[in-house]
Computed example of a mutant assay.
Amino acid sequence: MQIDFNLKLESDHLLLRPLLENDLNQLLELTQEPDMWKFYTHDLSHIDTLSDWARPAFKRERLQFVIIDKATNTILGSSAFGNYALRDRRIEIGWTWLAKSHQGSGINAQVKQIMLTYAFEKLYMERVEFKTDVLNSQARKALRNIGAIEEGVLRSHTLMTKERRRDTIYYSILKSEWNHIKRENDW
């Protein structure tokens, strides 16, 4: 099964729809908090780097969603499916960020639930991967909270903002773990 780049996913409260070029200005408004990009590969507070970050989505190299609050019809942030390997039946969920005002609100867990459900129950993935900066304790805690298993660290793996080299830590959830994780998280 191939990725549908027109895919929309939703829950009672959130809509995930593909990123459009005309979303960039609204996203830019959400990215202006100081230090928001400390653990991210791009500083999205500038239109040029936001456009560079979005380019793979427009080239259909990853399915980048905007996260929309259905009650207010406002964009809250973004997340994506990427690194899709059909033969290996694996996909990565990542490139995720939320406006500072929505961090710690439970939205990230809801987004992961929507995306994991689709990955395991519609795409029939065997493995869903996540990766983050080893220094990003907030992201690491969030991944553990949804049941992702820490796998290991790739040293000096990724170039970050301000020319820092990141040690990347990988997490995953396997198909054989999915039903237990759904029950544990009351999804």
Rank of each mutant, 00 (worst) to 15 (best):
T96I: 05
R165F: 14
A148H: 01
H42R: 11
E150P: 10
M115I: 15
N185A: 08
Q110Y: 04
R87L: 09
S51M: 02
D23P: 02
S105H: 12
Y84T: 01
K38C: 11
I47K: 15
A54T: 09
E10R: 10
T96P: 06
L28Q: 11
S79N: 11
A109N: 08
Q2A: 14
A99E: 01
K38D: 14
F39M: 06
K182V: 11
Y40G: 00
G82P: 00
L143N: 02
S101V: 11
M160F: 10
I75S: 01
V128H: 00
I93C: 05
E29I: 14
N83E: 11
D43C: 10
A139H: 03
Q64W: 06
R166H: 05
L20A: 10
N25F: 09
G147F: 06
T158C: 12
W97Y: 05
L28N: 04
E61I: 03
F81M: 01
F58P: 05
E129G: 11
N179Y: 06
W53N: 10
R140Q: 09
D167G: 04
A99M: 02
H157P: 04
Q32P: 03
D43A: 08
D69T: 09
K112T: 11
L30I: 04
A85M: 14
F130I: 13
H13A: 11
T31D: 06
D186A: 13
A139Y: 02
L44P: 06
K122H: 11
F58L: 04
I181Q: 13
N25G: 03
P34E: 14
R62Q: 14
N73Y: 07
A139G: 03
M125I: 12
L19P: 07
L16A: 05
G104E: 09
K131I: 06
D167Y: 07
D4G: 05
N73S: 15
A109T: 15
L24R: 05
E129Q: 15
F65T: 04
K100R: 15
L9F: 09
R55C: 09
V128I: 05
P34A: 10
D133N: 10
L50P: 08
D167A: 05
F81N: 04
T72Q: 13
A119I: 07
T41Q: 06
S101Q: 12
S11R: 00
I91N: 00
S79R: 01
S176M: 08
G147Y: 06
A99G: 13
G147K: 08
M36G: 12
D12N: 13
K100H: 15
I93V: 15
G94A: 06
P34L: 09
